[in-house]
Design a protein around this nucleic acid. Structure first.
Lengths: 151, 151
DNA sequence: GGCATATAATAGCAATTGCTATAATGGGCA
DNA sequence: TGCCCATTATAGCAATTGCTATTATATGCC
């Protein structure tokens, strides 16, 4: 009974993060920064607010993360031509190079993590966890709606 | 390919934490504090150092977490009779009451998360994730040994 | 156009965390 | 016993984060 799926999932995710951190320690980039860069790759030109929501930090926190990443030459702020309050975020070539390296690291890590599982089991694992995420995602949206209605 | 198992697991674990936090917001206890209390329940009388390792924070961080939890009347420091440098940590009755409430919350949340899965699928999910955790746990120990040897 | 309200981003302050150094105690060995 | 080194916990300082307030700009309404 102690092995609830929630605890199990959190433990496993933490082991993933730890292993990932151990393998990228020398890069000078933290795991949360990788998360930012990784999302930014798929949402090139996104503004700070929406990106903060994606990686789930407060806008002010993201603002300061971008400060540091811009200083490190990994992220670039460009003025939004349609809204002078906003910035559009872009990756620099250097960030893209680092992403390629990280992608290899991630692939290797995933292979190690699923060592001993056959293809069918891997697919099933992804399908089942995907359904969990879907459930929680819906629940969450539902709860947020309730919370807004209550205020 | 973007849906690697590592990212998927992390996303899902984060949704778990978010949902859990949303349901325990009024308790005045943070998720990390819950983690401490939860481990402390299974390791009554543990010393600070080993507990810090369990919940994966630095000893000094745990020391200050215990400061706050002791002030809140949830954790008690007792002198170790065998070692005058060390404290033995114990939960107070109030913490046990809160744990009962949390356990219910956790169970409900797990049911919601696995909504739509039949018993066989739930078992398979737990078995597969458990194997992932086992793989990563071994890998991690291996890497730490390598790291120590390298120093 | 002019004004009220909403939105994007940032600054100040308080809280939390980790790195490094330090105090107190324990344990091994001569 | 006395000394050296390891271990347990904690204090000071720097970095990061979030809450709240603030600035600049946009949008809607008259």
């Amino acid at each position: 009974m102690n092995e609830t799926i929630g605890f199990l999932m959190n433990d496993t995710a933490r082991l993933f993060r730890r292993a990932f951190n151990a393998r990228t320690k020398g890069s000078g980039v933290t795991a949360l920064q990788w998360r930012l860069i990784s999302y930014l790759k798929r949402h090139e030109g996104i503004r700070q607010g929406p990106l903060a929501e994606l990686i789930e930090v407060e806008p002010i926190t993201l603002s300061r993360m971008v400060d540091r990443l811009a200083e490190a030459g990994l992220v670039e702020r460009r003025a939004d031509p349609a809204d002078r309050r906003a910035w559009r975020l872009h990756l620099t070539p250097r960030a893209r190079d680092l992403l390629d390296v990280m992608r290899q690291t991630t692939n290797r890590l995933n292979e190690e993590a699923t060592d001993g599982l056959n293809d069918a089991e891997r697919e099933q694992l992804i399908a089942l966890v995907g359904r969990i995420r879907c459930n929680l995602s819906r629940r969450d949206a539902h709860n947020e709606t309730q919370a807004e209605a209550a205020e």
